[in-house]
């Protein structure tokens, strides 16, 4: 039994190393330099961990087998033994060496991930602001002046700088094929550099639990050739509607939405990463079964803003989150 388990584990760990196509383990099939550097780090750690597992399992199997109680050794009385300084130093030192072997590339990768990937340093990164809300992703292209919901198009082979923030709950922005994840937090801005090697469609999603709609909080990343990307931007600017404040407040309600596209961005009037921005919370929209407690009026809520008229969406009570679900929303430019 034990032996079988060892083999099963062996196979299980080797398998992804061997490669790709069949395992569909997205973490081992990076499609861009940021994700690739992480995969290399993971492979390096797997090697060492495999070594640890093999040594411990072998030793374990050997000892348990050799020194088991048998009918013919019942009169064997084990010796008094209190330890061995040499051995204890050995199995303290070796793990320390392994930790050092793992630390160096970890720290290096950590610092590298904060910069544009190697080979792309001289290119001007495309800045895309990501705003997460319950339960959708909003992408703003400030330079291009366009905004999308639940999908993001990027040019291939060009560094993208995602500036992440949240309009409400804390989320985590993850495109496993292209880069590791980072949290999006209200009134804060985290940054993530991403490059896609080649055109393709990748899944992105939220990994940080944020309520009822969490499981479906996904988006598509479409990497296009620069020409296609330019064309798409032009089309959006020509055909997509303008985003109004009222529409934006509606988007921020806790709902699922399909894809949306606009020819301006909400950054024109609010950037949730800004420390002094208004809050866009609406506890009424989050009621579930059970007893309701007291809800507090917050002074810095957008609803109390003297400059914007009171929103008329303030009282969507008991909204069924699935009602607004319509994945077939327009995907401009394809």
């Amino acid at each position: 039994m034990k032996l079988k388990k060892v083999f099963a584990l062996f196979g299980a760990i080797i398998f992804p190393l061997l490669s790709g196509c069949e395992t569909n383990m997205v973490v081992f099939e990076p499609q861009g330099p940021a994700a690739r550097s992480i995969t290399q780090l993971i492979n390096w750690s797997l090697l060492w961990m495999l070594l640890v597992v093999v040594v411990v399992f072998a030793l374990f199997t050997y000892i348990v087998w050799k020194y088991r109680e048998k009918p013919d050794n019942m009169d064997y009385e084990p010796p008094e033994e209190h330890g061995s300084t040499v051995l204890e130093i050995v199995w303290t030192a070796i793990p320390i060496l392994i930790v050092i072997a793992l630390t160096i590339p970890t720290v290096k990768t950590l610092y590298d991930l904060e910069k544009p990937p190697k080979g792309y340093e001289d290119q001007e990164p495309l800045v895309i602001h990501v705003t997460s809300a319950d339960w959708k992703w909003i992408f703003s292209y400030p330079e291009e002046g366009i905004e999308t919901v639940n999908y993001v198009n990027i040019p291939e082979d060009r560094p993208i700088l995602f500036k992440l923030t949240s309009a409400g709950t804390m989320q985590s922005f993850w495109i496993p094929a292209l880069a590791g994840q980072k949290y999006t937090m209200n009134r804060m801005e985290t940054e993530l550099y991403v490059v896609a090697d080649h055109p393709g469609s990748y899944l992105g999603r939220n990994t940080n639990f944020n309520g009822r709609g969490y499981a479906h909080m996904e988006f598509e990343v479409l990497a296009q050739t620069p020409q296609e990307f330019e064309k798409w931007v032009r089309e959006v600017k020509e055909t997509a509607p303008k985003l109004t404040k009222e529409k934006y407040e509606e988007i921020l309600l806790p709902t699922h939405l399909g894809r949306l596209t606009f020819s301006n961005t909400h950054l024109d009037w609010v950037n949730h990463a800004d420390a002094n921005s208004k809050t866009y919370t609406n506890p009424e929209a989050y009621k579930t079964h059970g007893y309701k407690g007291k809800i507090f009026e917050e002074e810095d809520n957008y609803k109390n803003d003297a400059y914007t008229p009171k929103s008329n969406h303030g009282h969507h009570e008991h909204e069924d989150v699935n009602e607004n679900e319509s994945h077939g929303g327009g995907h401009h430019g394809h």
């Binding site: 584990l9 992480i38 780090l41 991930l113 980072k182």
Partner: peptide, 21 residues
């Protein structure tokens, strides 16, 4: 031991960006 070695893997912050959550 399996729990432990995967713990070390998760402890490597850069790699954790892909395992987290």
């Amino acid at each position: 031991v399996i729990g432990g070695v995967t713990g070390v893997m998760l402890g490597m912050a850069a790699a954790d960006y892909q395992y987290h959550n």
